[in-house]
């Protein structure tokens, strides 16, 4: 990503955050917000910590589509785990297993592990980026097989595109 676009995006995000926390349309406050956001963004660029990894706006349009899909998955598996909780003779048979990921980038692997934890019914317990391997605790056979079908892995691969951060 171009560094001027990154600069503008970071400035816009910081200023939006300032405006959210103040919430007042006073010229002095808005001007102070512009000045402080500009100073912080300039300092970040001087420190060279403003790059594609700290501000991944290149994948943002695809990420929004992915978030909608992930939210649908979260709701579906919440309903599944809720049924499991409310069943009267409680019979859970938890599974503990390892899964391989096809992610090429560290960021994709990170998104994958976090998505697994966010979905109710599966928790990523131990992750290893070197071997691209996650140890997972699943609450039942269904959530385990849903994860092993690899749909989420493919979606994240598509989300990352040809980036290698």
């Amino acid at each position: 990503m171009n560094k001027y676009i990154l600069f503008l995006a970071q400035f816009f995000i910081l200023f939006l955050f300032w405006y959210l926390l103040s919430g007042k349309n006073i010229v002095l406050l808005l001007l102070l917000g512009v000045i402080i956001s500009m100073l912080i963004t300039t300092y970040q660029q001087k420190l060279k910590i403003l790059d594609d990894e700290s501000l991944p706006i290149a994948i943002l349009p695809r990420a929004i589509i992915y978030w909608i899909w992930l939210y649908k998955e979260i709701l579906l598996s919440s309903i599944f785990v809720s049924k499991l909780i409310l069943k009267f003779p409680l019979n859970v048979s938890p599974k503990y297993f390892k899964i391989k990921s096809n992610q090429k980038t560290a960021m994709g692997f990170n998104i994958y592990a976090n998505s697994i934890t966010m979905t109710p019914g599966t928790i990523s317990v131990v992750t290893s980026n070197a071997e691209k391997e996650i140890q997972i605790h699943a609450i039942s056979e269904e959530t385990k097989s849903g994860l092993e079908s690899g749909v989420m892995d493919e979606k994240i691969k598509k989300l990352m595109g040809d980036k290698d951060v």
């Binding site: 979260i74 919440s78 785990v81 909780i85 938890p94 934890t117 979905t119 109710p120 928790i123 609450i139």
Partner: peptide, 15 residues
């Protein structure tokens, strides 16, 4: 046990 309780807690904090 603690891991299955975490699954129950993750319903609360997401959905």
């Amino acid at each position: 046990d603690v891991f299955t309780r975490m699954h129950a807690a993750s319903i609360m904090e997401t959905a």
